[in-house]
Design a protein around this nucleic acid. Structure first.
Length: 324
DNA sequence: AAAGTACGCAACCGCCCCCGG
DNA sequence: GCCGGGGGCGGTTGCGTACTT
């Protein structure tokens, strides 16, 4: 698609100027991407307005910057938000609110835009379903006491299922949790490092599936034998690349992240061993309110792909918790 | 099969801050 | 101190696609 939309002047430029300069808006073409990449490869980034002019791009500097940062950067990661990343986003958002760029700094390769989109499309959706404000204490408590512990359970379960983790699903309360987050090396064999190598592929998921190696060294969560957590991840040994908050209460697992736009240009990320350590969990533990998730797991397939009645039950339960 | 709806996400917009002249 | 350009950030929009009826 080749939009050539006019109107809506960017900063400091009138629409007449835009017309005069024949600036383009809308989706970027492969040629434009290539031009931008090559220019930055030779001249570096920054001074975006002059960059756009010098490179011959009929785009605003802001548009170039955004395209580069959110899409073309070699180390940018897009696609499935892992369970670990979801947990991080929830935690960091509870700390900082809508400070997307700040949150993004703690998720290597993720952009503020993607995190913001995730929050709006996933988290806010659930707040809406629960008929409460996303900024309300009730909703924050729901995240803290329901969703985040479940995410941790699933992370642990996935790690245990993979056979490479020493953690168990039975843990005791501890003072703090330290989560080490390591990127795996990306396969650069086919593309050669240090250059901008373009490859067109239907999606990037293959590059992301094994991305997270999320270790929970200590846990504040008391989950005990969570059979559901172990079985809820239909993707077996991997930390599910396809998941979101929906399956925290029996909504069908989102099969989104289609990224099937074969016209787009993707890059193999070349992030190498980006280590992240963050003390995430507050000493009090998420289960301080004594919610019996195990019982819910067994009786109601908590977080699993239940049927409609399960959904209703879970919604009812959540609302009861919010009432308390 | 077609129409309607919901969803995900790339891109844009406007505001703001910083910094150099 | 003022001004203008560059850049960052959060909010919003609109399109393509998946899903539902």
């Amino acid at each position: 698609m080749d939009h050539h939309v006019k109107g809506g002047a960017p900063c400091n430029q009138s629409s007449e100027e835009l017309d005069e300069m024949d600036l383009r808006r809308g989706p970027w073409t492969v040629d434009e991407d290539f031009t931008l990449i090559n220019y930055i490869a030779h001249h570096g980034e920054g001074r975006w307005n002059s960059l756009a002019r010098t490179a011959g791009l009929k785009r605003t500097g802001k548009s170039c910057r955004l395209r580069w940062l959110n899409y073309l950067r070699p180390d940018v990661r897009r696609g499935n938000i892992t369970l670990e990343e979801q947990l991080l986003i929830l935690e960091l958002h509870s700390r900082w609110g809508n400070r997307w760029s700040k949150i993004a700094q703690h998720l290597p390769g993720r952009t503020d835009n993607e995190i913001k989109n995730y929050w709006r499309t996933r988290v806010q959706k659930h707040a809406k379903q629960l008929k409460c404000d996303v900024n309300s204490k009730q909703f924050k408590d729901t995240m803290r006491y329901l969703w985040m512990p479940r995410l941790v359970e699933r992370i642990q379960a996935a790690a245990a299922a993979s056979g490479g983790a020493s953690s168990t699903t039975t843990t005791t309360a501890a003072t703090a949790s330290t989560i080490a987050y390591h990127n795996q090396d990306y396969n650069m064999d086919s593309i050669g490092s240090g250059q901008f190598n373009m490859l067109t592929q239907p999606n990037m998921n293959n590059n992301c599936n094994n991305y997270g190696n999320f270790q929970i060294n200590q846990s504040s969560y008391t989950t005990e034998n969570s059979s559901t957590a172990a079985s809820s991840d239909s993707f077996g040994t991997q930390v599910s690349p396809i998941s979101d908050l929906t399956d925290c209460y029996n909504y069908p697992i989102n099969q989104g992240n289609d990224n099937n736009n074969t016209n787009q240009v993707y890059y193999q990320p070349n992030t190498n061993q980006v280590a992240y350590t963050e003390s995430l969990i507050s000493p009090g533990g998420y289960f301080s309110q004594g919610l019996n998730f195990q019982a819910m797991d067994q009786d109601n397939q908590w977080m699993d792909g239940g049927d409609a009645s399960d959904n209703l039950w879970d919604m009812w339960f959540l609302q009861q918790q919010l009432m308390n």
